[in-house]
């Protein structure tokens, strides 16, 4: 009976978490127009621009390094196998398709989750602990509009941009491998890659990035808003934010990949 109780409790808590996440996402979506230029408030848009710098620009070096490494690893691993069949040139296809469809958005999501997801939950958690969220509510200001919406809009603009940069870095890393192994010049490599890339892949990758951004910000904010207690709870929230956002990003990736696989 205790096992069943534990399973039931776990399922109930999981459903409550997803329900809370969905409701928060919907509230954030409704509040998003108030962040946009012209439609929204100037202060919100300014906050969103600052957040874009933090989420996007500051993460660029890390995304770049990881993408170059991943591109090189992918090229070497596939190259070792394809060389046996005399099909080394297909490494370029693998890298182009692999990054635009999958690796670019996924690597970017992991970096943003680790950097910004944890930072967002720690920031909001600290605001909860120091009664700043309560202060907002007593001032008749909506914490979702004031705190979440600018971060969400910022991430949904910055993360797809980062994803494009990740694609570029990864593909360029592949050119290094191809030059070393077959003396293919950068110009030739880029021409070949340009022929391999399908716009559908680029758009599906960007669509995934958009969803990943929404997941990372909303999980980070939810973990922050749920903080109760003191500084140790803030630390736990930051860890949970990274773990849960990575988990949901992978789940969403499986879901979207399955859909794009089934829809030719």
């Amino acid at each position: 009976m205790k096992i069943l109780e534990a399973i039931g409790g776990g399922v109930t808590r999981g459903l409550a978490y997803v329900g809370g996440l969905t409701m928060q996402f919907w509230s954030g979506l409704c509040a998003s127009p108030k962040v946009l230029p012209v439609l929204g408030k100037r202060e919100r848009w300014r906050t969103a621009i600052r957040q874009m710098a933090v989420i996007g620009v500051d993460a660029l070096p890390m995304v770049g390094i990881m993408s170059v490494c991943a591109g090189f690893i992918l090229a070497m691993q596939t190259g070792a196998e394809l060389r046996r069949f005399g099909a080394l040139q297909y490494v370029m296809d693998v890298i182009a398709v692999g990054f635009t469809r999958e690796l670019g958005p996924l690597l970017t999501a992991f970096v943003v989750s680790g950097r910004s997801g944890s930072a967002i939950s720690a920031e909001i958690g600290t605001m909860v602990v120091t009664s700043e969220i309560d202060a907002l509510r007593t001032m008749a200001l909506d914490p979702i509009e004031f705190v979440l919406a600018p971060k969400c809009v910022a991430a949904m603009i910055a993360v797809p941009c980062l994803s494009i940069m990740s694609n570029a870095f990864g593909i360029l890393a592949g050119s290094g491998f191809m030059y070393i192994s077959t003396r293919i010049t950068l110009a030739m490599y880029l021409r070949y890659v340009a022929n391999s890339i399908v716009m559908r892949d680029v758009f599906t990758g960007l669509l995934k990035s958009l969803v990943f951004a929404a997941i990372i910000v909303n999980v980070g904010c939810l973990e922050g808003f749920r903080v109760r207690g003191g500084p140790d709870a803030v630390g736990r929230a930051a860890t949970s934010a990274v773990v849960w956002s990575t988990f949901f990003v992978i789940l969403a990736d499986v879901f979207f990949t399955a859909i794009f696989y089934m829809v030719p």
């Binding site: 009664s131 700043e132 007593t138 008749a140």
Partner: peptide, 20 residues
């Protein structure tokens, strides 16, 4: 209505709760 009520109330919290 709650928003209107809150606009007529000011709250000074124990820890000040200023935005850092």
């Amino acid at each position: 209505e709650l928003k209107a009520i809150r606009r007529t109330m000011g709250v000074a919290f124990q820890e000040a709760a200023l935005f850092n």
